[in-house]
Amino acid sequence: MNNIEKELVKKVMDNELTNADAYNLRVNGESVERKNNPYIDIISKKDKSGIDVHVKDNTLFGIIHIPVILTESGLTETVYNDFYIGKNANVIILAGCGIHNDEHKDSEHDGVHRFFLSEGAKVKYVEKHYGEGNGDGKKILNPITEVEMQKGSSMTIDTLQIKGVDNTFRKTKAILASNTTLVINEKILTSNNQEAKTEFEVILNGENASTHVTSRSVATENSYQEFKSNVIGNNKCYAHVECDAIIKDEGVVKAIPEICANNIDANLIHEAAIGKIAGEQLTKLMTLGLTEKEAEEAIINGFLK
């Protein structure tokens, strides 16, 4: 890897790659480095590009890293990654995609991630997206995440789009059996003419299935964001969806909530709030000595933290 690529990996991974129990590093369309261990097995797919990750039953605190880096302008790829998490296994998966584009051709990475959680499995999935480079070629990321949760399993999905992604369309779909919990935290910052769309569909099939979806976003300059969520409750279940957005300059945010209760004991809540930074928040931080610009940054950083 050259220096640009090394730096890019750092931007999307807080942790050193080699600290992981298992990892797969993908650079410009090829898997270039991989590590497996007795509990976690990463295998390349035969029919298409991507990997299968198998985590054995009862694996405790496995850490898996799967960063993807694109520095070749004009590269467009769709990658299929499947995760099979064994019974009562407990893993943390750090995914991230960084694109560096200095040319005028568009670069695009579309990751299709499917998670199959067996009974009692626990997964924390963290995904960071980042774009950089001086070319006018676009940096495009369209992730699709599908989750199937068996009895008693739980999953947390943290997604963060930090900077520099021109176009993104994120689709997440989850089906939950009984006594499962799915927590989704999404954070997005857009600027310039960027566009970000997210779509969530959570189907609560089992008794005592619950989900908590939180989206916090900031749209600045001429950027556009759309948040669409659909939660379907087919049993005694609980859902809380929260969309909270700050708009600045000419930024536009659209939130489309949909909740559907097909069972008398389904309890579904959707909250959405869009607005500019509250004037009194700026004022308070200015009384503590921050300039207006610094105050604005502190409020946005806190909001997206």
Binding site: G289, N301, G302, F303
Partner: peptide
């Protein structure tokens, strides 16, 4: 007092 989202007590004291 003004309320915030995401800013902690420690953050505010650090700013101050």
């Amino acid at each position: 007092p003004v309320r915030f989202k995401g800013i902690t007590v420690y953050d505010l004291l650090k700013i101050a």
